[in-house]
Computed example of a mutant assay.
Amino acid sequence: MPPVDPAVMRRLNATLTFRLLREAPAPLTMTQLTRGTELSRRTLELILDDLTADGWVREVTVGSSGVGRPPRAFEFQPGNALFAAVQLDSHAVRAVVADTHGRLLASERRVLGDYLDPGTTLDQAVDALNAALVASGRQVGAVRAGAVAMPGLVDAEGLVIGLVDAPVWTGVRPSAVLAQSFPFPFVGDNDANLAAVGERWKGAAQGVDSFTWLLAGARNGAGIVIRGEVHRGFRSSAGEIVRAPAVGMSELHEHPLGGLTHPDPRHRARAAQIVERIRSGDREAGALLDEFAAPLARVLATLVWTIAPPLVVLGGGLELAADVLVPRLEAALAAGGAPAVPVRATSLQGDAVLLGALHEARASVDEDLLRAKA
């Protein structure tokens, strides 16, 4: 076996220590670090000196028994690098700037002038992100990477290969367009895929390796995670089962409760009023819920019998009706003899997509984060 390059080994050790500190929920002592990395104390001290000098960690005081000096401990500094995310839909664009832990520092939203004009839409995305950067109070040089999320079939390189009702977007790579306006790289993906990533990082699917994230109504989409990775399938079409005519999702596009997932807040507000009527026992509103739940249950049954995820997460606005919708869906699955897969509402409200985008922006440069100071 050829000898290991010392420079490569130092980098691997530094990366291991960096990631351990970054993911830790609290400061780590030297003892915890040596156990977690299996590195010698001297090696760790040299790595921590570099990480401290570059602003990634700081030494902090933790509690002690009162005998002798307190143990040395180190805390990760998530604000040392920032990340950007942009979410596009047919109504608006939202841009955010966040720290390494995904904590939002600034958010800006713009109502789109013409979604069917990709150039104009992406100009508005640039404007929104520039405004978010200003609002964050940080220099643009602190941003290491960005990500853009949008509906439709989006391949692994961020290229739009199909978008229902807006074929003009086919062949556009929004991440490449945005990268021309900012001094940092961008990645791009389908919004439901990124919502699933965000849910696993910060939401209802934390600690779950396989699950499906689903929205249905005025917007339809599914993000499928298998063994910790987004499943794309042939031509990135996995999860687009919601388009299949046989499952009847088209019935929900104009349904009054379909407004829960509409990109326009006015439509969502009207649907939310119906949900309130359902909660109060209104029979007419209850009938609307039955109409809405039936085709959605068919989609769930198809997913349960094919992918068999151990968890389904409802999002994109469906969480607003979770208390009345989830029992209907679970009862329908049970009546059809489907496995009793738990159905939960997102715990991230409207931020799942953006958090997933931030996670993927971070992941896209994860190997480079230690190469230069923020």
Rank of each mutant, 00 (worst) to 15 (best):
244 A>S: 13
289 L>W: 02
313 V>D: 04
17 T>D: 07
355 L>Y: 09
23 E>S: 13
82 L>A: 06
288 L>S: 10
58 R>E: 15
330 E>L: 06
15 T>K: 06
149 A>L: 08
105 L>Y: 08
9 M>W: 14
290 D>N: 14
283 R>F: 14
94 R>M: 13
98 A>S: 11
126 V>F: 01
233 G>F: 10
99 D>F: 01
234 F>V: 15
339 P>A: 11
304 V>S: 10
5 D>E: 13
10 R>D: 13
207 G>H: 08
131 A>S: 12
8 V>K: 00
143 V>N: 00
10 R>N: 05
194 L>G: 03
191 D>Q: 05
148 V>S: 04
76 F>I: 04
53 A>P: 01
248 G>W: 05
218 A>D: 04
107 S>H: 11
60 V>S: 09
76 F>W: 05
308 A>G: 14
121 T>A: 10
295 P>M: 08
19 R>G: 08
258 G>F: 01
374 A>L: 09
104 L>R: 12
91 H>I: 02
229 E>N: 12
41 R>G: 07
322 A>I: 12
337 G>W: 04
286 G>L: 05
370 L>Q: 02
184 F>D: 09
341 V>L: 06
372 A>K: 10
164 V>H: 15
284 E>F: 06
342 P>L: 08
21 L>F: 04
218 A>Y: 04
335 A>C: 13
78 P>S: 10
196 A>S: 11
222 A>L: 02
47 I>D: 00
93 V>P: 00
203 G>D: 02
83 F>S: 03
98 A>H: 01
29 T>A: 10
333 L>W: 05
309 P>T: 04
33 L>K: 02
113 G>D: 14
307 I>S: 07
234 F>T: 12
148 V>D: 04
170 T>W: 10
211 F>E: 02
264 D>N: 15
65 S>A: 14
43 T>H: 07
310 P>I: 00
313 V>L: 13
88 L>E: 08
20 L>Q: 09
201 W>F: 12
273 Q>V: 14
310 P>D: 08
86 V>N: 06
133 L>V: 15
11 R>K: 09
243 R>Q: 09
188 G>Q: 05
111 V>I: 13
10 R>V: 15
352 A>S: 15
1 M>P: 14
306 T>P: 05
137 G>H: 08
325 L>N: 01
291 E>P: 04
298 R>M: 12
16 L>I: 10
131 A>M: 01
102 G>R: 02
12 L>V: 13
294 A>S: 12
348 L>P: 01
310 P>H: 05
157 E>P: 01
332 A>F: 10
203 G>E: 01
90 S>I: 01
118 P>E: 09
42 R>P: 00
164 V>K: 15
204 A>Q: 03
50 D>H: 07
332 A>P: 05
239 G>I: 01
300 L>T: 04
329 L>F: 04
267 H>A: 13
50 D>W: 02
72 R>L: 08
212 T>R: 04
122 L>M: 11
15 T>S: 12
